[in-house]
């Protein structure tokens, strides 16, 4: 190791005398760029750091060339990639939120949507608030209808309506619909005509 340090000291003296070749100077730069530098040579480390990079930058500034022309390109690439990645992440986030909202809406399907109650003239449309009333109304109405259906069945069993009676009822219904199309003062005349009186 001592021989190497002596060689470096010799090289250093020749460098300051301006006698070193390019290869020898590169050897010096490599040596001072490393960590294994003896204490008495460490003071030259900043000098060679300057010769290696600072001087080149100053020369480039003097000649008007951009310092380390390739570096901006190398640095720009990661930034661009970061921007693209950030954009993709934002897009993924927006899509996820939209999907979440859509799923929540689909899952939150309210079968009673559009239902409402009116109490003392106040209309309440929030189905989550009026759900007990909604369910009570359904129960009550279905019970009423069931009772009526049972009665209808028992009535039709004891007194079945003939097919002719059913047809006659439908004709009467259609006639009434026609009569109702006319003004009140004409209804009686139309009824007499239809019933052939």
């Amino acid at each position: 190791m001592t021989d190497r340090y002596k060689y470096m000291e010799d090289l250093l003296n020749r460098f300051f005398s301006g006698e070193t070749s390019n290869e020898e100077e590169r050897e010096l730069y490599r040596f001072f760029a490393g960590e294994d530098i003896p204490a008495h040579l460490r003071r030259y480390k900043p000098v060679f750091s300057y010769f290696e990079s600072g001087l080149e930058k100053e020369l480039n500034l003097l000649t008007g060339e951009p310092a380390e022309a390739a570096e901006p390109f190398r640095r720009a690439m990661p930034k661009r990639r970061i921007r693209i990645a950030a954009g993709m992440a934002a897009l993924a986030l927006i899509l996820s939120v939209a999907a979440l909202l859509f799923l929540r809406k689909a899952n939150a399907f309210d079968p009673y949507e559009g239902s409402y109650i009116v109490r003392s003239g106040v209309r309440i449309t929030d189905t989550s608030l009026i759900r007990p009333e909604i369910e009570a109304t359904i129960q009550k109405a279905l019970q009423q209808e069931e009772r009526a259906n049972r009665l209808l069945l028992s009535l039709s069993a004891s007194n079945p309506e003939t097919r002719i009676e059913q047809i006659q009822r439908r004709i009467n219904r259609q006639n009434e619909e026609i009569i109702n199309r006319f003004p009140n003062e004409m209804k009686e005349s139309i009824r007499r005509i239809i019933e052939n009186k």
Binding site: F109, P111, Y112, E113, G114, S115, Y116, I117, V118, R119, S120, G121, I130, E133, I134, T137, I138, A141, R173, E176, E177, N180, R181
Partner: peptide, 30 residues
């Protein structure tokens, strides 16, 4: 034409009356 036009009109009228408690339930298939 609705067959029950008189009843329908009366129910409609009741929906806007303050002293009538009204519940309108619309039930949709899940």
């Amino acid at each position: 034409l609705p067959a029950q036009e008189t009843l329908k009109a009366l129910v409609k009228k009741c929906e806007s009356m303050d002293n009538v408690n009204t519940s309108v339930v619309r039930n949709r298939n899940k």
